[in-house]
Amino acid sequence: MAVPLTLPYAHLNLRRNPFGELERAERAELAEVEVDELVECVRRPGVAVQLLGGSGCGKTTHLLAIHRRFASAPYVKVIDGTRARVPFGHPVHVDDAHLLASSERRRLLHRPASFVLTTQCDLSEEIARSGLRSVVVRPHQLLSADLLERVFARRVEAARRGPGPVPRLARSTVEALIERWGPDVRSMERALYEALARLEECGYVRVPT
């Protein structure tokens, strides 16, 4: 006989796996990042904020958190191998700006606006040539066990089904994740997704080291 269906993750007092893929709006809502200063920076035209770092370190999370403050401002995710059309507006948010063709990027940076760019390579020279003030933020340098503990706890809380206990992460688990994955938060989330999917009852999420 087939196992009768129950509500998803109800045994863990959750609605879904907290470490699964989130929609853009959910990611922005749950972003545990401090962006007040950056938001002030880009309020007036003439500034380019670069969120610089490798894959999965929190660049897009910062970008989404900033974009949340400028809901009607343009936001574009550049897909490798396709031509991105960046709408006019201010400030302009571009995810993966390093994937834009250099001519396209040059044209973009000459617009009378401010820019928030995520990039894997430093675009400071191009930004300076465009007469913009460059602000560089390296999200991986802001990561700490404290921050990650808050990030993961917030993800779990957002998936909470009702009052009562929910799965928890021990500090030692967070430290082990940093040890294993460095600044790659996306890989940590994938490991936590697997660990939580296997959890049979509320308790500590343990990640194999």
Binding site: P8, N17, G20, E21, L22, R190
Partner: peptide, 9 residues
């Protein structure tokens, strides 16, 4: 209806 899990929703 909506999907959720490891993939995009």
């Amino acid at each position: 209806w909506q999907t959720h899990g490891a993939g995009n929703k």
